[in-house]
Design a protein around this nucleic acid. Sequence first.
DNA 1: GCCAAGATGAGACTCAGTGTCAAATTGGTC
DNA 2: GACCAATTTGACACTGAGTCTCATCTTGGC
Lengths: 141, 141
Amino acid sequence: MVAARIPDRMTSQGRRLTRQRVIVAEALASAKRALSAQELYERIQANHPTVGRATVYRALEAQVQDGMASRFERDGHVSAYIACDAEHHHHLVCTHCQRVEDLDETAVAPLLASVGRRHEFQVDHAALDFYGLCRSCRRKR
Amino acid sequence: MVAARIPDRMTSQGRRLTRQRVIVAEALASAKRALSAQELYERIQANHPTVGRATVYRALEAQVQDGMASRFERDGHVSAYIACDAEHHHHLVCTHCQRVEDLDETAVAPLLASVGRRHEFQVDHAALDFYGLCRSCRRKR
DNA sequence: GCCAAGATGAGACTCAGTGTCAAATTGGTC
DNA sequence: GACCAATTTGACACTGAGTCTCATCTTGGC
């Protein structure tokens, strides 16, 4: 089960396991969709009104570093976050309901390999996310 | 020559061809690297001090819509822009010198096709940019 | 040249995200 | 369990990219 490994990841790099970071991680994981830091903060406020806004931002940043979440850009220059259980995951983001599907890494690998081969470029990281309408949102239109 | 088509693109959707938008387009095209709106504004100031900041932002937005430029996110939540001469171009961005290489579209197409097939997802647009060090920056390290 | 629709420039405004700092918490160590 | 240094937190001030407003100016069709 993936959840069992979460505390390990959260304490990587000498990071301490705090109540607040657990709250943020759980809130993001249970959302099952992309949320901005502000939206997540507001959700957390409902049950944990003492958790500060800056703490949510810091916790999200830590989660991204620890490979527990990924960040991408939503329209309007806002970052959105989604919980994920492996590193280097890429996503299909529904721009209507904000639900996120994982993209099969095996489909991505050939592209990454070909880029390394064809361009003398040391790829550090890739923004590789697709935006559009998921099946159920497409039907509703 | 591609440049000849620029006025056509700039007047799409009933948009008017203004002196300022030409200045912005030329400044971005001649930069040959990714620039933030602010950086571009500052460059333009040198030769055209009357062009306003908001105008540069608006012109860049229009260029992205018209497929004359693409936008991606730089660290620090800032948009950067690069001129491009075809639609749906994806890029290799050097995070050190900000130079940009075009990514061969034929390498990308299989991925796009497989996403459409494997996920019932109507892809609207894709963030598909690679960040890293270009050859010359890599050598300098 | 005329004129309506659209664009511009100046600057106020917004708000996501960051920095600061005193107080609180964590997790080794004894 | 108590102690303590290092880290984290919460509150809030601050920053700055990007947007909005509005009076004025341009564009382009007639």
